[in-house]
């Protein structure tokens, strides 16, 4: 079975983002970019399925600016077989990405699509669910465990829900979004990074896929949240307990 893994290039999770002074967005100039952490988990899961002999091919897909190629090369270095870049400089919102992925699914016919549960830049947590809806497929979001059945027609997925876990059985093809507990992603080794440069990377566009990607939400303003005022240092445990009881009144 073929697995499709959408990956997104985002600001590295260790970077302190800065709001542009004109309030138009986040300053992305000279900021370290990385693969969205939840997508790393997704690539890892797909590659493990291939290593276990369950999947036959892992295809990584990204949509956005030309430099998303770097993220796709990372996916290839982590074990994806080939990559597809849907290149555009339009600001892509989740519904548009879901429509692009739907068009790719119609061409590639994967049995399983594994997106990360959310991207750590816009924090929307929508694309996987939207893709499943547009395809009329079942979905298993926030997955922490995946077991594909022997004839690859269904899968049991354990999901993170409020207060615990639930396991659902879904028919394949389906969309499964990853949560952090699904696996621990590997690091790309230098030989694999070198090999990744030779793996196929195909480029297409929204127009070629026949998808209208015009944004539906207008960002009017981006602002810094209210800053925390620096607190005080206390001398010892007794003073801390006194402050928590009488000043903060939280205990």
């Amino acid at each position: 079975m073929k697995i499709l893994v959408p990956v997104k290039r985002v600001v590295d999770y260790n970077v302190k983002v800065r709001v542009k002074s004109d309030g138009s967005g986040i300053d992305l100039a000279n900021v370290k970019m990385s693969m969205n952490p939840f997508d790393e988990v997704a690539i890892e899961e797909a590659v493990r399925l291939k290593e276990a002999g369950i999947a036959t091919e892992v295809v990584a897909v990204s949509a956005g600016l030309a430099n998303s190629q770097e993220t796709l090369r990372t996916a290839l270095a982590l074990g994806a077989d080939r990559a597809i870049l849907i290149e555009t400089d339009v600001e892509l919102q989740p519904l548009a990405v879901a429509k692009l992925l739907k068009a790719v699914c119609e061409k590639e016919s994967p049995q399983l699509v594994i997106p990360g549960k959310q991207a750590i830049d816009d924090d929307s947590n929508q694309t996987g669910q939207m893709l499943a809806a547009l395809l009329g497929w079942p979905q298993a979001t926030f997955a922490s465990k995946l077991v594909v059945n022997a004839d690859k027609t269904a899968a049991a997925v354990t999901r993170e829900i409020d207060g615990g876990l639930e396991t659902i059985e879904i028919a394949l093809p389906a969309v499964m979004t990853t949560d952090l507990r699904l696996n621990e992603p590997r690091y790309a080794t230098l030989p694999n990074i070198m090999k990744a440069k030779k793996k196929p990377l195909e480029t297409t566009t929204p127009a070629a896929l026949g998808v209208d990607v015009a944004p539906r939400l207008k960002t009017l303003k981006v602002a810094e949240p209210a800053r925390r005022s620096g607190g005080v240092k206390v001398a010892d445990v007794a003073e801390l307990v006194e402050k928590l009881k009488n000043e903060a009144k939280v205990i």
Partner: peptide
């Protein structure tokens, strides 16, 4: 957005 490091005001069309 960005895990609460910024607040976006968005308008739906």
């Amino acid at each position: 957005i960005y895990a609460g490091n910024a607040l976006a005001t968005v308008q739906s069309v």
